[in-house]
């Protein structure tokens, strides 16, 4: 199905530009054109299609739905909704407070917020097209597992102790209201006509596209450079054995590199194609996407340093364990 993009890139790079497939530049450019054209077309089509379907899903409905759910189900649902609900990371704080003040336990809220940057439709789409469905499935399961267990752990250590006092009070009020049966802002079911859905999907496509195209160019550009200019076999020879230290090293390396999933997935593809073990690549990718300082600093407005640091360590440990697990499993995949 994706052959057309390979042919298209071949036509541009080897035909029109007259570069040799065997040259480094030709190889790198071919990779670049193929991936950028493929990603651009896929994004435009799929974001629109997905937005049509989920036009009526929003954080308010998710909150109402999560309210009063049993904890065990709550973490899983929090994580599932984190994966499928669209929201801008600049809304993290209001969403956190909105969930909290409704009385949703902090662990469930965090399952939602941890999973959200890791899994979204754009990331899944890129993974499917670049690395295949098996890998995508692994990624999604792993991302949700981290969200779920992160949430469980935070509730187990009673993380709400380390919220800013106004957030904690809001949580306690919300929980008191909830047990007293007070209903907060349950919205009426929204019914949308197709025209409205189309409007929403169109706006969503334009919005996401205008936000991520830069990342695509940068990410694919880096991937292409790696692909063309890192000597063949270098990565495989030095890191291909899945040396134990390579996973924590990849996680640490990912922290200062802040990117969203769209930028890092093409890099990951290139690394994997060049022989980097998938566990190491996954750990690197997740660390780059989810453990970013700018977002953590934002959370400081509602949490004490202690909770922030705990959260950070949880993520780093989780990514490392996950990397080791997948490297260990690779022979059986």
């Amino acid at each position: 199905m994706f052959q057309i993009f390979t042919d298209f890139a071949g036509w541009i790079v080897f035909g029109l530009m007259g570069l040799l497939p065997s040259s480094k530049l030709g190889d790198a450019l071919h990779f670049f054109v193929e991936d950028v054209s493929k990603i651009a077309v896929l994004l435009a089509v799929m974001i629109y299609a997905i937005a049509l379907i989920r036009a009526t899903l929003n954080v308010e409905r998710v909150r109402d739905y999560l309210l009063g759910k049993h904890r065990a189900i709550g973490y899983v649902l929090g994580s599932v909704f984190g994966a499928i609900t669209p929201f801008c990371s600049c809304s993290s704080i209001p969403v956190f407070l909105g969930f909290t003040s409704a009385g949703i336990p902090i662990g469930i809220t965090m399952s939602f917020l941890i999973t959200s940057p890791l899994i979204n439709e754009v990331a899944v789409l890129l993974l499917m097209s670049l690395l295949g469905w098996k890998f995508t499935l692994l990624y999604v399961v792993a991302g949700m597992a981290i969200g779920i267990f992160g949430g469980v752990f935070l509730d187990a250590i009673r993380a709400e102790r380390w919220l800013e006092s106004f957030a904690l009070e809001a949580l306690q009020r919300g929980q008191a209201d909830q047990s007293a049966g007070v209903n907060h802002g349950v919205k009426e079911q929204t019914v949308m006509s197709f025209a409205e859905r189309h409007q929403f999907a169109k706006a969503e496509t334009v919005d996401i596209f205008s936000r991520v195209w830069k990342w695509v160019i940068v990410g694919v550009g880096l991937g292409a450079a790696l692909h063309g200019f890192v000597p063949d076999g270098w990565i495989e020879a030095h890191l291909g054995g899945g040396q134990w230290w390579s996973v924590p090293a990849a996680v640490l390396l990912g922290i200062p590199l802040y990117s969203n999933a769209v930028g890092v997935i093409p890099v990951m593809e290139s690394l994997i194609v060049n022989g980097l073990p998938i566990g190491t690549a996954l750990a690197f990718c997740m660390s780059t996407v989810a453990a970013s300082f700018p977002e953590f600093i934002l959370l400081k407005q509602v949490m004490h340093w202690r909770l922030l640091a705990t959260l950070f360590v949880i993520l780093l440990v989780a990514f490392t364990l996950l990397g080791w697990l997948f490297n260990g499993l690779t022979p059986y995949l």
Partner: peptide, 13 residues
């Protein structure tokens, strides 16, 4: 201020 935003019941900005 996140407190004020919360007081308006707003989750998406």
């Amino acid at each position: 201020d996140p407190r004020q935003i919360m007081a308006y019941g707003v989750m998406t900005t």
